[in-house]
Design a binder for these strands. Structure first.
Length: 311
DNA sequence: AAACGTGACAACCGCAGTGTT
DNA sequence: CAACACTGCGGTTGTCACGTT
């Protein structure tokens, strides 16, 4: 047998919290802490709320040192960079932004940053709005959906956004880059941004070359230099080699450099047009994944479904 | 001034992993 | 070991304020 039911759902208040409820919860936790048991807490604190609701209220609103209000440019950059690399892992992203909650960041991304990003991409590439008819012509009939890469697309998008604020000139753009090889545990610290910094490196696009992360740790994978983007991503296991078995080549975008690489060059055609559309599509559908084959498959299916609708 | 639309944010829901009985 | 509760997370929905028509 298990435990007693967590709460009587019929007898639990829902909806916005009143100042009185906030005060009760805060007072109780200030005195006794959470006790590691959120389910029992509301009853002890004299609240007619579900423990889950109390936990959320505390973590997202009442907890000390919670930062509300405008996000700084630096926070924007961190969110974009992390989102591009790890996807919608809001709790991990939040751990790198002291005072910010995952819910806050998630809301901020969904309501503002995503639009900002899309606005940047479309304005910087002067993309006309596409209707279904237009979209149809952008998709080659032999388009290989297994070659679609949400992660790389967002990586590129994010670097484009970030590059507008960072050390930018026409041929040489530097932006912060989270090392995709850094152990995930780097991101799982208790909000300590210091432990993550070993995962942050600087990467540069020079002409058509992607210059890999500059060495910031003893990890050998940092030793790469003057590496093209595709090679870098391939070496780091993010993308597969062109012509590989489809199961391993899901991360490969058909690029404009013949070799299958994805190059970001702000002077030349920076991104394949259809890739850009897919970035926007990706952002709008929230199907960003992080090396998760099942989700990728799901994403591919959805893309395919959409394309089927257009034909 | 009322109706409607939109954006921002708080809160809820459902799922998955883990722990407990 | 099975069954169930607990916890944390990400996605979604609800609500409110404000702007526009």
């Amino acid at each position: 047998m298990g435990r007693a039911p967590c709460c009587d759902k019929a007898n639990v208040k829902k909806g916005p919290w009143s100042p009185e409820e906030d005060a009760k919860l805060k007072e109780y936790i200030d005195k006794f802490g959470t006790g590691g048991n959120w389910i029992a807490l509301p009853q002890k604190a004299g609240l007619k709320r579900c423990g889950k609701s109390c936990r959320l209220r505390w973590l997202n609103y009442l907890r000390p040192n919670i930062k509300h209000g405008e996000f700084s440019d630096e926070e924007d950059r961190v969110i974009c960079s992390l989102y591009a690399n790890i996807g919608s892992r809001w709790s991990i992203i939040a751990a790198q932004l002291p005072g910010r909650t995952d819910n806050d960041i998630k809301n901020y991304w969904n309501t503002k940053l995503k639009k900002k990003l899309m606005g940047f991409v479309s304005s910087s590439h002067k993309i006309k709005p596409l209707n279904h008819h237009h979209y149809q012509h952008q998709i080659p009939t032999n388009y290989n959906y297994n070659n679609y890469s949400p992660q790389i697309s967002l990586f590129q998008t994010s670097s484009l956004l970030i590059s507008s604020n960072y050390n930018t000139n026409t041929n040489n753009t530097t932006f912060p880059c989270y090392d995709i090889n850094a152990p995930i545990s780097n991101f799982l610290s208790n909000g300590a941004s210091t432990s993550c910094t070993s995962g942050i490196t600087t990467s540069t696009f020079q002409e058509n070359n992607f210059v890999g992360p500059t060495a910031t740790s003893s990890d050998e994978s940092y030793g790469v230099s003057n590496l093209d983007f595709h090679t870098y991503m391939y070496n780091n296991g993010v993308i597969g080699e062109e012509g590989e078995d489809q199961g391993n080549s899901k991360f490969l975008i058909s690029g404009n450099n013949g070799g299958g690489g994805c190059y970001v060059d702000e002077q030349q055609n920076p991104l394949d047009y259809s890739s850009l559309e897919e970035i926007k599509e990706l952002i709008s559908t929230n199907h960003v994944t992080c090396n998760n084959n099942n989700l990728l498959l799901d994403h591919e299916i959805k893309i395919e479904e959409k394309v089927m609708m257009y034909y």
